[in-house]
């Protein structure tokens, strides 16, 4: 048997520690009741049930496939179900080079998603155009759609993508339920010509 970390240092089986439970939101509890803010409950529910929409165009998409698969297992974070219809999804994951000709398609996919929606830009190309500093490539998807979290790397490792997902979860959890109708958000949308 080849000595690797797993058979030299046996990991003690401890189900109570290895199963991650969502923390209870702050609130008042008594006998038979628990009172908290609606936004906390909604945030908790949304955070742990993200449906990602993968928009994978190049090598970052390959890293995303590794992230999805059993070794890194995005399902551990409540994103078991990838939707391939924008109507069903909450999180648009843009992975890869977006050419200028692709930009209207990306924007349409974003518009087809229902609020609330978040955008994760994975990799140098999606975030800034990357090495493709050229006439045909969109220099960052934030020129056409608003982005919540950028993951750096060329391509980023699956750990990086998972870190991005955790950052998105953090945003989702702490977001006010009325944020999407706030003047700041409306102004942001108007900057992108989204009504």
């Amino acid at each position: 048997m080849r000595p690797v970390r797993f058979n030299i240092n046996k990991k003690p089986v401890n189900l109570t520690d290895s199963v991650m439970m969502a923390d209870m939101p702050p609130g008042h509890s008594g006998e038979g009741f628990f009172a908290t803010q609606l936004s906390h409950v909604v945030g908790l529910a949304r955070k742990n049930s993200i449906w990602p929409l993968p928009f994978a165009t190049s090598c970052c998409g390959i890293e995303f496939m590794a992230t999805m698969a059993s070794h890194y297992d995005l399902a551990r974070f409540g994103s078991e179900r990838l939707g391939f219809s924008p109507r069903q999804c909450d999180l648009l994951m843009v992975m890869g080079t977006i050419s200028k000709k692709m930009a209207p398609v990306l924007k349409q996919v974003y518009l087809q998603m229902a609020e609330p929606r978040w955008v994760l830009s994975v990799g140098a190309c999606a975030s800034s155009g990357g090495i493709f500093d050229t006439y045909s490539v969109l220099q960052g998807i934030d020129q056409v759609i608003p982005v919540d979290v950028y993951v750096p790397g060329c391509p980023p490792r699956p750990e990086g993508i998972i870190d991005g997902i955790l950052k998105i979860q953090n945003i989702i959890q702490n977001e006010d339920v009325r944020r999407r109708s706030s003047p700041v958000y409306q102004k942001l949308m108007q900057e992108y010509n989204i009504q």
Binding site: K100, K101, G129, D133, T134, Y135, S136, V137, Q139
Partner: peptide, 23 residues
């Protein structure tokens, strides 16, 4: 046929730098 229709120049002509000049 290959570039976006809004493009106003011919990108392979030498007077145009390769990089995107809009950023």
């Amino acid at each position: 046929i290959l570039n976006v229709e809004e493009m106003t120049y011919y990108p392979m002509r030498k007077e145009y730098p390769l990089e995107d000049q809009t950023r």
